[in-house]
Amino acid sequence: MDFQFSDDQRALRSGMRDLLGAVFDRDRMRAAVERGGGVGRGGGVDRDRGVDRGLWRELGAAGFFALRLPEEAGGVGLGLPEAVLLFEEAGRALLPGPLVATHLAAGLVKGAAEGEAVVTVAEGGGRPVADLGGADAVLVGGAGVLTGEGLEVLTGEGLEAFVAGAVPVRSMDPLTPLHRAMGLAGASEAYPGALRREGALLSAAEQLGSAARTTEMAVQHAGEREQFGSLIGSFQAVKHLCADMLARTGPARSAVYAAAVTGDPVEIAAAKLLADEAAVRNARDCLQIHGGMGFTWEADVHLHLKRAWLRTARWLTAAEAEEILAADLGPVRPLYSGSAALG
C-alpha cells in the first residue's frame, strides 16, 4: 500500500501555502493581532468586529471550506486527507477564525462553502464559544454537537438571542475572542460522533502545522543568533531542544495523517493527543531558544504558544482523548492471580 502523497496532494498543499503567504503574511497577521476582535468596550459581543471577511472570501474562493463537498453540490469532492493538509498549512500561518466549524458547516449553512458566511460552534460541556463576534451562524446542541444527532444551526433571531446571552471570557490568544454561552449544556461522549471526530482531527492538523513552524523558527534562530562569539546552534543544549522538537513533530504527523486515512475514533484521539503535545511543547522550547526576546510582544513565538494552549481545550481535550484510548484497551487484568502471587 502506497502512503506517499500524490502529485495532486503535493500541489494542493503547496498552493495553499502560497495563497496564505499572499493573503495572510506576517504584516497582515500582526495587524490582526493589534486590532483584536469580537469583544466590545462595554463587555458584550461586538458584531462589527471579528473575522476578516475579505480573507474569508479568499479562502472560500480557493475551496478551503468546500473541499469535501461533492462536486454536484458545488464542492471540490476531496476527502479528509486533503483537508488535513490544508489545515496543517493554516496552523503554520496562525490563520485566525473558526476555520474548523465553517469547514464542517459547508453543507449545512448557506454561504459557508463560498466563504460568505462565518460559522462557529458551541461545543457545550463548559467550553467557551470562539469568534462569536461577526458570526453568521452557530452550531449548537449539547448532545447534537457531540454525537452528530439533533444538531441545531442558529441564524437570524435565534443567533441574536444566543449572542445577547453570551458573556465575554478573557482569551489568552489575541486572535481568538471567547464568550461563555450561559446555560449551554452538553457533556462529552466516550466515542464522539462524526462532527466532533472530524473537528478534533482538523484541530490536530492545525496543531501539527504550528509544531512544524515553531521547529523551523527555532532552528533558524539558532543558526543566526550569536552568544560568546559562537552561534547558539552550536551549543549542545540548544541542539537537544531542536532535536526534541523534531522528534515530537514526526510521530504527531504520522498519527494525524493515518487518522485522516482511517477516520477511526481511537486513532483520531491519539492524533489529537500527540499533536497537542507537540504544538505546546515545541512552542515552549522555541521560546526558550529565542531567550528574552521570545517573551516580548513583538516576537511571534508567544502567539503560537497561546494558540496551541487554546486548541488543547477544543473539540477533544487530553482527558477525553485518554478516556477513548483507555476504553479501547478494554478491562485491565492483573498479571498474577492472588494464589499465584502467593506462590
Rank of each mutant, 00 (worst) to 15 (best):
Asp285Ile: 10
Asp285Thr: 04
Cys286His: 07
Cys286Val: 06
Leu287Phe: 05
Leu287Gly: 05
Gln288Phe: 03
Gln288Tyr: 11
Gln288Val: 11
Gln288Asn: 10
Gln288Arg: 14
Ile289Trp: 09
Ile289Gly: 04
Ile289His: 11
Ile289Met: 04
Ile289Gln: 08
His290Ile: 00
His290Met: 10
His290Phe: 15
His290Trp: 15
Gly291Val: 04
Gly291Pro: 06
Gly291Met: 07
Gly291Cys: 08
Gly291Arg: 04
Gly291Asn: 09
Gly291Leu: 05
Gly292Glu: 11
Gly292Val: 08
Gly292Cys: 05
Gly292Phe: 09
Gly292Arg: 13
Gly292Met: 10
Gly292Asn: 13
Met293Thr: 10
Met293Phe: 12
Met293Arg: 13
Met293Lys: 07
Met293Ser: 11
Gly294Ile: 02
Phe295Asp: 06
Phe295Ser: 03
Thr296Phe: 08
Thr296Met: 12
Trp297Val: 15
Trp297Cys: 05
Trp297Glu: 15
Trp297Gln: 14
Trp297Thr: 15
Trp297Gly: 01
Glu298Ser: 15
Glu298Asp: 14
Ala299Val: 01
Ala299Glu: 14
Ala299Asp: 15
Ala299Asn: 14
Asp300Phe: 04
Asp300Arg: 04
Asp300Ala: 13
Asp300Thr: 14
Asp300Trp: 03
Val301Gly: 01
Val301Ser: 06
Val301Ile: 09
His302Asp: 10
His302Met: 09
His302Lys: 08
His302Arg: 12
His302Ala: 12
His302Trp: 13
Leu303Ile: 04
Leu303Gly: 05
His304Val: 07
His304Pro: 04
His304Arg: 09
Leu305Pro: 08
Leu305Lys: 11
Leu305Arg: 14
Lys306His: 08
Lys306Met: 12
Lys306Ser: 15
Arg307Leu: 10
Arg307Glu: 11
Arg307Tyr: 02
Arg307Trp: 03
Ala308Asn: 02
Ala308Glu: 05
Ala308Gln: 09
Ala308Leu: 04
Trp309His: 14
Trp309Gln: 11
Trp309Lys: 11
Trp309Asp: 15
Leu310Ile: 01
Leu310Asp: 05
Leu310Tyr: 08
Leu310Lys: 06
Leu310Glu: 09
Arg311Ala: 08
Arg311Leu: 12
Arg311Ser: 08
Arg311Met: 08
Arg311Asn: 09
Arg311Tyr: 07
Thr312Glu: 01
Thr312Ala: 00
Thr312Arg: 04
Thr312Val: 00
Ala313Thr: 13
Ala313Ser: 13
Ala313Ile: 02
Ala313Gln: 15
Ala313Phe: 13
Ala313His: 14
Ala313Tyr: 13
Arg314Asp: 10
Arg314Cys: 07
Arg314Gln: 14
Arg314Glu: 13
Arg314Tyr: 06
Arg314Pro: 00
Trp315Ile: 00
Trp315Cys: 03
Trp315Asp: 14
Trp315His: 12
Leu316Phe: 02
Leu316Met: 10
Leu316Pro: 00
Leu316Thr: 03
Thr317Leu: 02
Thr317Ser: 11
Ala318Cys: 02
Glu320Cys: 00
Glu320Ile: 00
Glu320Trp: 00
Ala321Glu: 01
Ala321Leu: 00
